[in-house]
Computed example of a mutant assay.
Amino acid sequence: MRASEIIRGGNGPTPGAVRLLTGVDGSIYRQRLVAPDNADRKLTYEIVEAPLAVLGCRSTLHVPPVTDTGGAFLTWHATVDPAQGTTAQKATTVLEAACAPAFAGLHTITA
C-alpha cells in the first residue's frame, strides 16, 4: 500500500471507523473496523470498497504471542461473498493475493 488514513470515526481503534487505503497502483480500498479486541489481540474489519471480485468480506486478524520465543504468530480468517459471475474459489484467490504483500510487510517491519 502507498497510503493509509482514517477518514471517518476518529484516530483510534473505534468500531465503525473507516480507513482509506491507496495501493501502489492508485487503487482505492475502504475498510470498516468492526471489532477491535486489544485483550485478545484480535481485529475484525469489513471491506467496504475494493477493486476485487468480492461483494463482501469480513476478516479477523489474530496475533497470539509465542511465549517460548517472545515473538507472535499472525492468523487471518476471512469470510468472502464473491461478486456476480465469480466463484468463491476465484474470489478467495484474488483476496489472498491482494493481502499477501501487506502480511509480508508486517513481517518486515516487525522482524
Rank of each mutant, 00 (worst) to 15 (best):
R2N: 10
A3V: 00
I7E: 10
I7D: 09
G9M: 07
G12C: 07
P13N: 15
T14G: 05
P15F: 03
R19H: 03
R19S: 12
R19T: 14
L20W: 11
L20R: 15
T22A: 06
V24A: 05
V24W: 08
D25Q: 02
D25S: 12
G26D: 13
G26W: 04
S27T: 11
S27D: 11
S27E: 09
I28M: 05
Y29G: 01
Y29S: 09
R30C: 05
L33V: 12
A35T: 13
P36F: 09
N38L: 15
N38Q: 14
D40G: 09
D40P: 00
R41A: 01
K42N: 01
L43V: 11
L43C: 15
T44C: 07
T44K: 12
T44R: 05
Y45M: 08
E46Y: 02
E46A: 14
P51Q: 11
P51T: 06
L52T: 07
L52P: 11
L52W: 06
L55P: 04
G56H: 13
G56L: 04
C57Y: 05
C57K: 08
S59T: 15
H62P: 00
V63D: 00
P65A: 02
D68A: 15
T69A: 03
G71Y: 00
A72H: 04
A72V: 01
F73G: 12
F73K: 14
L74W: 02
T75D: 00
H77M: 05
H77L: 10
A78D: 05
T79I: 09
T79K: 11
D81V: 14
P82I: 04
Q84N: 13
G85W: 04
T86A: 03
A88S: 11
A91Y: 09
T92S: 11
T92V: 08
T93G: 09
T93P: 02
L95H: 09
L95Q: 12
A97R: 14
A98L: 05
C99T: 13
A100D: 10
P101Y: 00
A102R: 13
A102W: 06
A102S: 14
F103V: 15
A104E: 12
A104W: 07
G105Q: 11
G105W: 10
L106G: 02
L106E: 06
H107I: 10
T108M: 10
A111Q: 13
